Amino acid sequence: MEITPKAVAIPKETDHLEQGRYGPIYPRTPACYGFTIIADVKPGRAEAIRNHGHVLAKALEDDPHLLAPLKLHYLRWVLFDDDTRFMYQGIFDTDFDKYTEDAVALFGKVGVNTVFENLVGFPEDWKTNPEAFVRYVREHQCPSFIEYGEYPYVSADEIKKALRVKSALSEMLDQLQ
């Protein structure tokens, strides 16, 4: 089976898209689902954001499957403009509504705060008000207009399964030698 890379241009207008609980449901692209937000950092909170990255990395070291419910492929955080602005970019396998609801539920369950608490205007009641969380993300979302996938429409679970098969096959071939 040959996998053909693919790109999809995403329309600027979203009125024609199916509406979910929190607004338009962006179509699945070759890169799956995802979103990018750019927001202002609360004054003096850039180091707290960096530290939150260390906290998250440590939490994942302790429990590598901590974020598994989010079905993430990638997560990227960037501070820029002299640490006054923050970019969050996530690529995942579920639609936006499910991802954000799962994130709020996960953070509440494990008692983890979100890095977004360091951003100007982020709702203080986000743990009990998923709608406010989603509204903030939607207001700060910077939608992409093209997405490319070297291995289009492949889920994180499918990638992990393929890597397990590859490992098992390699181990079997090593035993034959």
Rank of each mutant, 00 (worst) to 15 (best):
R135G: 07
F122A: 00
P123D: 08
C142N: 10
K127A: 14
E139P: 00
F133E: 04
E147F: 06
G149K: 09
N118W: 04
N118F: 09
D125Q: 07
I146K: 06
P143M: 00
S144G: 13
Y148I: 13
F116V: 06
E124D: 15
K127Q: 12
G121Y: 03
S144F: 08
T128I: 09
V134Y: 02
V115K: 01
R135D: 13
E124K: 15
V120E: 12
P123R: 04
V115W: 00
H140Q: 02
W126A: 07
V137R: 04
Y148A: 10
G121K: 04
A132M: 02
S144V: 10
E139G: 03
N118M: 09
F145Y: 11
C142D: 09
K127N: 09
G149R: 06
G121I: 04
F133K: 04
L119K: 04
P143G: 02
P143H: 02
N129C: 04
P130W: 00
P143T: 01
E117D: 13
N129Q: 03
P123S: 09
N129P: 04
V134P: 01
V134L: 05
V120K: 13
E147I: 07
E124Q: 14
V134A: 03
K127R: 15
P143N: 04
Y148E: 10
S144E: 12
Y136E: 03
S144H: 09
E117F: 02
E117I: 14
N129L: 04
C142L: 13
E124F: 11
G149H: 05
F116G: 09
I146S: 13
Y136N: 05
T128C: 06
R135T: 15
E139F: 00
R135L: 08
V137K: 04
E124T: 15
G121D: 13
V134H: 06
E139K: 10
T128W: 03
W126F: 05
F122C: 01
F133D: 09
N118D: 14
R135I: 04
P130R: 00
K127D: 06
E139T: 03
E147W: 09
G149E: 07
N118R: 06
D125N: 15
E124H: 14
D125G: 12
E124W: 10
C142K: 14
T128N: 15
Y136C: 07
E139S: 11
G149M: 07
H140T: 05
E147S: 14
V120S: 08
E139W: 01
C142I: 14
V120F: 06
G121L: 05
W126Y: 14
L119D: 05
Y148P: 09
F122G: 01
E117G: 11
R135N: 12
P123Y: 06
P143C: 01
F116A: 12
P130M: 00
P130T: 01
N118G: 07
G121A: 12
N118A: 12
P130C: 01
F145D: 13
F116R: 10
V134F: 02
Y136H: 05
I146W: 02
V115C: 05
Q141K: 12
I146Q: 10
K127I: 10
F145P: 00
Q141F: 02
W126I: 11
P130G: 01
R135K: 15
C142H: 11
N118I: 07
T128R: 11
F145L: 12
V134M: 05
S144R: 08
Y136Q: 03
R135M: 03
D125R: 06
E147H: 11
V137C: 11
L119C: 09
E147G: 10
T128D: 14
